Simulated assay, not measured.
Amino acid sequence: MALLTVNNLTKNFGGLAAVSHVSMSVEENELIGLIGPNGAGKTTLFNLLTGVYEPSSGDVLLKVGGKEERLNGIKPYKVADLGLSRTFQNIRLFKDLTVLDNVLIAMNSKNKEGFLTSVFRLPKFYRTEEMMTTKVKELLQIFGLDSKMDTLAKNLPYGEQRRLEIVRALATQPKILFLDEPAAGMNPQETAELTQLIRKIQREFQITIVLIEHDMSLVMDVCERIYVLEYGQVIAHGTPIEIKNNPRVIQAYLGGDL
């Protein structure tokens, strides 16, 4: 049983099929790439997998406690609670909050304190707050953001904002981390640092990563398997070498030269 199974997933917007009969599987601790031309349906597929959109047909199945749970129609916050977390093409930080508070908000989604404990600030509330703050500081240290914890998110350089968004997603303790074009807008040095960061995340956190990315050098460098979308359909699936040498992929997306 795969960690995540997608069966014939389709999403229609009026008469347009943005995603059409997509099937794929994701195993535990895998690093999967999802590539394709602009408008191929990659972000729409992410939105279907993380509860932002409800499929027109097909199924999204997540392994939970040794059995498969259907995610169709489940709200995004419940999907996140089941262990699916994501970043977005356009950075979505709380720009007027500090680095520390951005991550604390995410980690607080796992806080199961009762209503009375929170409202009346009982001793357990402060113990939980202290524990979460310690964990957030440890996360920020791992990703080199501990010296910026009191900095407003909007004052971080672009590359560090991207890194903070990833840290915030990790704070929800996901089983699967979906990264939507994390290298978008980065210079070559920042992209190289991101490549190392993605490897570090998988190695140290032992989680599955699914990555949308247009930077083919990054995709080919870090991904174990790759799915290729065109016009909302999977046209190829395989290892980086298989994808690199696939004639249909070259014709549809890579332009004959990688």
Rank of each mutant, 00 (worst) to 15 (best):
A2W: 03
L3T: 07
L4Y: 04
N7E: 15
N8G: 14
N8E: 14
K11C: 03
N12W: 12
A17R: 12
A18W: 09
V22R: 00
S23V: 10
S23C: 10
E28N: 07
E30H: 07
I32T: 11
G33D: 05
G33Q: 05
I35K: 04
G36V: 01
A40E: 09
T44N: 13
T50V: 12
G51Y: 08
V52I: 15
V52G: 14
E54D: 13
S56E: 11
D59Q: 14
V60E: 06
L61Y: 05
L62P: 07
L62N: 01
G66R: 14
E68S: 12
L71Y: 03
N72I: 08
G73L: 10
V79E: 07
A80Y: 03
D81G: 10
L84A: 02
L84W: 03
R86C: 09
Q89E: 09
I91R: 07
F94D: 09
V99H: 01
D101V: 03
N102L: 08
I105A: 13
I105F: 10
I105E: 07
I105D: 05
A106P: 04
M107P: 00
N108V: 00
S109L: 14
N111P: 04
K112I: 12
E113S: 12
S118N: 10
V119A: 12
R121Q: 06
R121M: 03
R121N: 08
L122D: 02
K124S: 14
K124Y: 06
R127D: 15
T128D: 10
E130I: 04
M131G: 00
Q141H: 15
F143L: 10
G144P: 02
M149E: 15
D150H: 13
T151P: 03
L156F: 08
R163W: 04
R163V: 06
R163C: 04
L164Y: 05
V167W: 00
L170D: 08
T172G: 02
T172S: 13
Q173C: 04
P174V: 07
I176P: 00
L177N: 02
E181V: 05
A183W: 08
G185E: 06
M186D: 10
P188W: 07
T195M: 02
T195N: 06
I198W: 06
R199N: 04
E204H: 04
Q206T: 01
I207G: 00
I212V: 14
I212R: 03
H214R: 09
M216E: 07
M216T: 13
S217F: 00
S217N: 09
V219E: 03
V219W: 02
M220P: 01
M220Y: 00
D221T: 08
E224S: 08
E224K: 11
Y227N: 06
Y227W: 03
V228Y: 00
I235W: 12
G238D: 11
T239A: 04
I241Y: 10
I243V: 13
K244S: 13
N245D: 13
P247L: 06
A252E: 11
A252I: 13
Y253M: 09
L254N: 12
G255Q: 14
D257Q: 15
